[in-house]
């Protein structure tokens, strides 16, 4: 497969850590020209991502912006527009939530999860469109968007809305040559899974129930993101690809 990233200009939201970092690095390793790495507040981790991206002779621009706030999304894109004249790829990884029973959610916890994880996607895509001649957009979803995972209500609901947003935007943007898809991961080995209550047991149980015999690594997802931005996936439009080592089969 030829490199999907070669010469491209990409924005990765939530790129300072975890899956977003792995995707930023993969883009750089496959020859991207420029990667804008958005993050919330972790300057130290963002700086590490920048160093790693630059090791591949790819330009890295760190853009701290809280995507739960529309004015900060505006500032993020103003900064992008001051630096480049187009974007080819947008990968949306930013998300944050509270792990707790759905009935115990307070309005502010619902709002913050929705705004940071899902509304942010729509608002970013609105700013991406004028910058994309053709392009590929990928959102990170999770199995909890379609099934019940204990204590995952807020994020699960936000991911269901995210997958639906992907379908609507895909239909509206396909005529412009912009493809929109999502990846739904099973449990992936990043810091965020330590936020689950009793995360060690969760990991052990997940490994037992996963036919492939392990939990996912961020790089497993990064490879799929590369496929979804490549021309090999040109006929995939508005879909959520499940990537979970078979966890959801049973």
């Amino acid at each position: 497969m030829k490199s999907a990233a070669l010469g491209r200009v990409a924005l990765v939201s939530g790129g300072s850590r975890g899956i977003g970092r792995a995707i930023s690095l993969q883009l750089a390793a496959e020859g991207a020209d420029t990667v804008f790495v958005n993050y919330l507040q972790n300057d130290v981790e963002a700086e590490k991502t920048r160093e790693l991206v630059e090791q591949h002779d790819c330009q890295a621009h760190l853009v701290r912006a809280n995507l739960a706030y529309p004015n900060q999304i505006g500032q993020l894109f103003d900064q992008i527009e001051q630096t480049v004249d187009h974007l080819d790829v947008f990968i949306h990884c930013a998300a944050l939530t509270s792990m707790k029973p759905t009935l115990a959610l307070r309005p502010n916890q619902w709002d913050l999860t929705m705004n940071a994880s899902t509304r942010s996607f729509l608002l970013c895509v609105k700013r991406c469109v004028p910058l994309m001649r053709e392009g590929a957009i990928v959102a990170l979803s999770s199995l909890g968007g379609g099934r019940v995972i204990p204590n995952y209500g807020a994020m699960g609901i936000a991911k269901a809305a995210l997958e639906s947003t992907v379908r609507y935007l895909a239909a509206e943007l396909a005529p412009k040559g912009i493809r929109v898809n999502a990846i739904s991961g099973g449990l992936i080995d990043t810091e965020s899974i330590r936020n689950f209550p009793d995360s060690e047991t969760l990991i052990e149980e997940t490994v037992k129930r996963t036919p492939a015999g392990r939990i996912g690594q961020p790089e497993d997802i990064a490879d799929i993101a590369m496929f979804l931005i490549s021309s090999e996936s040109r006929w995939i439009c508005g879909q959520t690809l499940v990537a979970d080592g078979g966890l959801s089969l049973s």
Binding site: N66, A68, Y69, L96, T97, S98, K100, R106, N108, Q109, L112, T113
Partner: peptide
Amino acid sequence: ESIDILDIQFRIE
């Protein structure tokens, strides 16, 4: 809860 602390931080900012 911890998400509320973040929320309040964001609102202050």
